[in-house]
């Protein structure tokens, strides 16, 4: 028998081992839900799968009686639109700021301290300010997401830009490159996969800001819905919504990872 340290799971058992905890959690939930519902059929805390399925099919497959909208899809569309817009703005701003401060020492000296201070402001504390300035519409929610994750992305890209070996920059200059050419052909392409990594890492924070903004002032959105139905203790809606948000987050993350592998096959292959 090999030492535990050296035991490797096979491909198949690796998948199985990964699914095992999930299956266990599901099982525990189902048993607990069954027990509670057996004791009290009106219990709202741990709805059964059938109850949750009913609630979601009501919201996703039937038009709302008052507005005629399919609430689930409207919520999903609104939330994704806000999140993606906010993240896109943050990624663009972060890339430009990070590239400039990371590659041009004069820029870095001018803006790095400011960037550090800005990144320390808790974005949620700014939410009232955003509501006052931009009103309660879409803009303030998108702005919160953008403001919340831009400093993180900018600082990450700045650090990545500084990590690119100086030999490459010297080499480009000995081939005749000027500052702009070095930035566009040497630094920028190498920063793109790192930008995707930074976006993946900041998506969690993005969801946090989105749901917070929607909970406080909104008329639709996944976060809005969860906080709305909380008043009726509608766990049969909340649990599927949370699961749906998790699934969306997972798909976004995997999509970005796939893009990164596909577009930048040289990324993460060690220093050359």
């Amino acid at each position: 028998m090999k030492r535990l340290l050296n035991l490797q799971p096979s491909r198949f058992s690796r998948v199985l081992l990964g699914l095992l905890p999930l299956a266990l959690i599901l099982l525990v939930y189902l048993v607990a839900s069954d027990l509670r519902l057996a004791a009290n059929p009106d219990d709202k805390l741990l709805p059964s799968l059938a109850q949750m399925g009913d609630a979601i099919s009501r919201m996703a497959l039937e038009p709302n009686r008052r507005t005629g909208e399919y609430i689930f899809w409207v919520d999903t569309f609104s939330s994704l639109q806000r999140l993606l817009l906010g993240v896109l703005i943050a990624a663009s701003l972060g890339l430009v700021i990070g590239l400039l401060t990371g590659s041009l020492p004069l820029f870095g000296a001018g803006f790095s301290p400011l960037l550090t201070i800005l990144s320390l402001i808790p974005p949620l504390a700014l939410l009232p300010v955003l509501f006052i300035v931009f009103g309660l519409g879409e803009l303030s929610k998108v702005a919160l997401i953008a403001i919340g994750i831009t400093p993180f992305i900018a600082r990450d890209i700045q650090r990545r830009a500084q990590e690119i070996p100086v030999e490459q920059l010297i080499k480009a200059q000995t081939l005749g490159a000027n500052t702009l050419q070095v930035m566009i052909r040497v630094l920028l392409p190498q920063l793109m996969p790192r930008l995707l990594d930074a976006v993946r890492l900041s998506l969690g924070a993005g969801w946090l800001f989105l749901i917070a903004a929607e909970a406080i002032a909104s008329t639709d959105g996944l976060g809005y819905r969860i906080f709305l139905v909380r008043r009726y203790m509608a766990m049969d809606v909340i649990i599927p919504y949370v699961a749906w948000i998790t699934l969306l987050a997972f798909v976004l993350d995997q999509l970005l990872a796939w893009f990164s592998r596909r577009l930048y096959p040289w990324h993460g292959k060690g220093g050359v």
């Binding site: 392409p189 190498q190 220093g271």
Partner: peptide, 19 residues
Amino acid sequence: DEPDSDRGIVFQQYSVFPH
């Protein structure tokens, strides 16, 4: 006092563009 195309260089490593 900065690199230019008069002088070419080959370093021990990081001399080519990985991307």
